[in-house]
């Protein structure tokens, strides 16, 4: 029995499709599946384990959204509380971490908008400047300084924070997830429910905005 060329090509295509399916299902594998199941069944210890595993990242995201430790603590607790109360509605279509970061970004964005409307960041920025007023004057960068040399200075940290605080919420969240927290494009795309291309282009625009602000302040 002889296999013709068309049959061989079909077999190759089927093999590729199978590999792709296996690959995609592997993407959905969730290390937290067991803990999540136990937690949904009312196991508080399982929930505590999930909190211990993700509290640092969630707190960090929260802090980047609000820029204040107390606010960040409150926001992070709000995020985990929401996750705990809605865990039964988590269907496992995505990883638990993706779902958790979705809650974190949504809540973070909302809290950021809320605080911004109340001038939280403006007041905070001016008070910080006042506190470090003398230091700031002394730390004014040399106009001829090389950009790379600026990275070692304290001034750039403040400039970056101020630049982030002035970003639009959509730009802010993507900068936080990618450049500060170091999540992959694929994961960010899932969290924000965006195509990967859109994720990259939006991040690029956000970076360009921050870059212009830094350049304006530091050069």
């Amino acid at each position: 029995m002889t296999l013709d060329l068309e049959t061989i090509l079909n077999l190759i295509c089927l093999t590729i499709a199978s590999v792709s399916l296996v690959g995609s299902s592997t993407d959905n594998n969730d290390d937290d599946e067991e803990l999540v199941k136990r937690c949904a069944g009312g196991d508080r210890e399982a929930f505590n384990d999930l909190v211990l595993k993700y509290q640092k990242k969630v707190f960090s995201v929260a802090y980047r959204f609000v820029g204040d430790p107390e606010e960040a603590n409150d926001l992070a607790q709000e995020i985990f509380t929401a996750a705990y109360q809605n865990l039964k509605s988590f269907r496992g279509d995505s990883k638990f971490s993706t779902w958790l970061f979705q809650i974190a970004t949504n809540r973070g964005k909302n809290r950021f908008k809320y605080l911004k409307r109340r001038g939280f960041f403006t007041n905070k920025g001016s008070s910080e400047t006042d506190d470090e007023g003398d230091q700031s004057h002394r730390a004014l960068p040399d106009q001829t300084a090389n950009p790379e040399e600026l990275l070692s200075g304290n001034q750039i940290r403040k400039a970056v924070i101020e630049a982030i605080n002035e970003l639009e919420p959509d730009h802010r969240e993507i900068v936080i997830l990618r450049d500060i927290e170091g999540l992959s494009y694929d994961e960010i795309a899932r969290i924000l429910d965006l195509p990967e291309g859109t994720t990259k282009s939006r991040l690029h625009r956000a970076r360009m905005v921050v870059k212009e602000k830094l350049k304006k302040v530091l050069s």
Partner: peptide, 10 residues
């Protein structure tokens, strides 16, 4: 400056 921005954020 683009590189500085990314590094500063990180």
């Amino acid at each position: 400056w683009y590189g500085v921005t990314i590094q500063a954020l990180a």
